[in-house]
Structures are given as C-alpha cells and as structure tokens.
Computed example of a mutant assay.
Amino acid sequence: MHFGVFVPQGWRMDLVELAGPVEQWEAMTAVARAADTGPWDSIWLFDHFHTVPEPARETVFEAWTATAALARDTQRVKLGQMVGCNGYRNPALYAKMAATVDVASHGRLYAGLGAGWAEDEWTAYGYPWSSLKDRMGSFRESVELIHRLWTEEDVVFHGKYHSVDKPYVEPRRKPPLWIGGGGEQVTLKLVAQYADACNFGTGQVDVIEHKLSVLRKHCESVGRDYNEIVKSTSLNLFPISPGADPVTATAKARGRYSVEEFREIGAGGGVGLADILTTGEIRSRLERLEEIGVQYVILYIPGVAYDHDPLHLLSSDVVPAFS
C-alpha cells in the first residue's frame, strides 16, 4: 500500500489562522517539503475556488498553478489533484497543462480528473452550470480526448461538447491519469477504458467493495486488465498516540475551533466528520481496506498547516507498517 497526503491550500478553511496569503502559501509549501523528506509517495491538491462548508472570503490557492510551483519546491514526491474539475478547463488545454507540469516535475505528475460538482463555484466564475447528464457527457468526451492527445498525433475530434483539429500538444507526455468518482454507468467505465488509477473518496469498506466489483465487470467488458489499475481511497483523519487526550492532542492544530467544529471542517463539509484516531486504530482501518483491494490511500490531516506533528506521527508509526 502506498500513501499520499493533501497539502493545506485553503479549501477546507485550513489556512485561516495565518496572517496573509504569502504566509499561507509558505505554510502549504512547508507541508509539501515535510512530506518530500518522509515516506510519502505523493502530495495532493483539491481543484476548488471557494471554501467549504460555506463559501467564505478566504484564500483558496488554485490547483494547477500550485501544482506547478510545488513541483519545483519538492524533489521526490509525486504531485496530483484529487481531482481536476473537467468543467474548468478545455480538455485540450488540460492535456497541455498536464504535460507541461509533468516535464517541470521531471515525470512526477499524477493527473487527476473528475466531472465536477460545486455549483456555486461554476456560476460564480462564469462557467455554465448544466444538467448532470450534460456534465457527464462532457466528461466522457474529455477523458477520451485527453487520452488521445497524450498518445496520438494530429487528433481530430468533433463531439457534442468538445472539438479539436490537430492541436500540437507538445511536449506530448502521458502522465498517469487518475479518475475520481464512483458513478457506475459512466465514470467507472471510463476508468476501465482509459485510467491508470481510480479514487473512491469514501473510505467505506462496503461501498468500495461494491464499486470495485462494478469496475472489474467493466474491465472484462472492454478487455482491460483489472490489475493494471491502481485502486485508491481518501481518508480524513487526525492521528494521535495511544492514550493521548484528543482535546489536548488537537489543540495546536484546531486553533479557533472546538473539537466538533474541527472534525466538521476536516471533513470538508461532506457526509460525516473527520476522525480523531490512535495510530493503532488507523492501522486497523488500513488493513481492512487493504484486504478488499485498496492499494493507495490519500490522507487529509486537519490543521496540518499549523502542526506538523500529526504528519510525522503517521510517517513513523503508520506508513512504514505497510511498506
């Protein structure tokens, strides 16, 4: 099992304790560099413009420019987005951007892509918000087109949502494509056809088991080797040592928040709360995920911008156990 960690970029209100954007940027970079010197395989960013759980006038660093900069601030770790929003960039531009960052990082890019879901961001930034059917149709065309632009020359494509006429996507590189999402009719079929890795961001064993069974059937239908695809999930958690008091252990990372607020912010406004778990409890959870076929876990650590100790605790007491 391999591990990645999200760097704090502001989306989950995880830079608000810092004085200004430069200090916030340096805090994000410091976490990236800390991961670069540890046992982590990768660092990750979200592709969002507004904070969660509610939009607030707070810093959220843009994913692709941040990825490019962090590529030059690190030496070893891979860099990815979980995941890039298809609606924010023309697929040919996406292919060009990803190839550029892959070169800048000397081949360390994991290119993440998903259909997108944050309606408030789309409308605020002037992207037309369409039906789920149209967003998935656009996503389907984009994945095929990006794959072709990375692997073919003189691509001509005239779809319902996207068109290109022999663009020169140079440098022409093919970084690993990570597709996020668990839609069984479109997304998982695209994973089977084109992806190098997939991500089900739930961390829920029963859900992941089901999604993997669906993916296996799609692979059989299209003649793809199921074992070629990296299966990943994401977890939101704050590690503590066995016997540690959760209130005391999270104090530096929590800042202005109560423990309950801290757990809610750490979950990104999604279903449930970020977990505060001992290292032993985390290892047990990871062992169960490994048993069902999860090969890669991306961890989000609330408050890591203010306290690197949880990152170091995972580095010493959790990640090596699965090496």
Rank of each mutant, 00 (worst) to 15 (best):
W64L: 15
T123K: 04
L15W: 10
R172V: 10
F61I: 06
F6P: 12
E54Q: 13
I240C: 07
L212S: 08
N199V: 08
Y306Q: 11
Q24V: 01
M136S: 04
H162F: 15
E58W: 05
T123N: 00
T278W: 15
L299H: 10
S42Q: 14
G183P: 13
V247C: 00
M82P: 05
D196N: 13
A56Y: 03
A249H: 05
C219Y: 05
P239V: 02
E17C: 03
M1N: 04
A68M: 08
G182L: 13
D245L: 02
A321P: 01
A124R: 07
E62R: 14
G180R: 07
A99W: 00
V318L: 07
A192R: 06
S258K: 00
E281N: 06
V31E: 11
G280R: 12
E144G: 08
E152P: 01
Y94M: 13
V319C: 12
R148A: 13
Y300A: 15
S130C: 00
L212I: 11
L177P: 09
G10H: 03
W44H: 06
V101Y: 02
P239F: 04
W11S: 05
S42D: 10
V7M: 09
D225Y: 00
I240S: 11
F262M: 11
D14R: 08
G270R: 15
A249I: 01
S258E: 01
A111I: 03
A92P: 06
T29K: 15
E153L: 05
G20V: 06
E287D: 12
D41S: 09
S163R: 15
E228P: 00
D225M: 07
V16H: 13
A69E: 08
I265R: 14
T123D: 01
F157V: 05
R33T: 11
R140K: 14
G255R: 08
P8Y: 14
N86V: 04
M13L: 15
E153Y: 05
I43K: 11
Q24C: 13
T202I: 05
I282P: 14
Y168D: 13
C198L: 13
I276T: 06
R263K: 13
R256P: 11
A98F: 03
R12P: 04
